[in-house]
Design a binder for these strands. Structure first.
Lengths: 115, 115
DNA sequence: GCCGTTGTTTGACAGTCGACGTACTACGGT
DNA sequence: ACCGTAGTACGTCGACTGTCAAACAACGGC
């Protein structure tokens, strides 16, 4: 009754680089909570656990948002002990859509500053 | 009986430049039909009537999509006789979010070519 | 072995979205 | 005055979204 994934390294499905769709990425980034997560990940540059983010939503909603980000190809998630680490898929996104992520991040920063 | 707008020039509400929200723009661009419209508008550079677009949806759905694009600040719409002309708000978008529109368009082109 | 921390799952719920058809309005020509 | 073309408004429908609470699972340490 292992669910299909071997215990000890719960598997997380990610789209391959070629499967990443622009529409899905834009949709993932169009939510304020998710955009904020992406900004923090970009600012950090490395990997951050879900628990690092102090989001104005419950745990289950947080799980949901991270799943949308992962399934759209925006973040990569891996388990490290009990924590789930999140990293931006900068390499893949920059290869597929050069400049897109940077201009979205710049736009978000600008809008936040003007706020 | 006039609905509030003087006859002869039906008014269409547009967000002012400062009211345009990044999240709304990304959401507007995350739909395949709308992204396609935006690409055609960008390729043309000028104004095109709704009837120019041969979209795989009905007229009423087309109206809906153009409204989303207008209300998010992506396109500007004006009536010209019985036609409703649509133009990209390049000036406003470029001023608010430099490079964003271009990288989205480049990404869309790239994805379409690879498709 | 037990507990706390971390995250998942499930089910519910209200709201939005994209799509449709039908009925309607607005304008330009004939 | 009439018709045709262009687009709108309204109501509906099913699917998806964002949110929550409550119960559960996995791992690390004590």
């Amino acid at each position: 009754m292992t669910t299909a994934a071997p215990a000890g390294s719960r598997a997380l499905p990610h789209p391959a680089r070629t499967e990443i769709r622009l529409e899905s990425v834009l949709h993932a980034l169009s939510d304020p909570v998710r955009l904020r997560v992406v900004r923090e990940l970009a600012a950090d540059g490395g990997e951050l656990p879900c628990s690092h983010f102090d989001l104005p939503v419950t745990k289950s909603t947080t799980t949901h948002h991270f799943r949308v980000l992962r399934e759209s190809g925006v973040v990569r998630q891996v388990y490290r002990g009990t924590a789930k680490m999140n990293g931006l898929r900068r390499d893949d996104l920059d290869a597929l859509f050069p400049g897109l992520l940077d201009s979205v991040l710049a736009a978000a920063r600008r809008q936040a500053d003007a706020g």
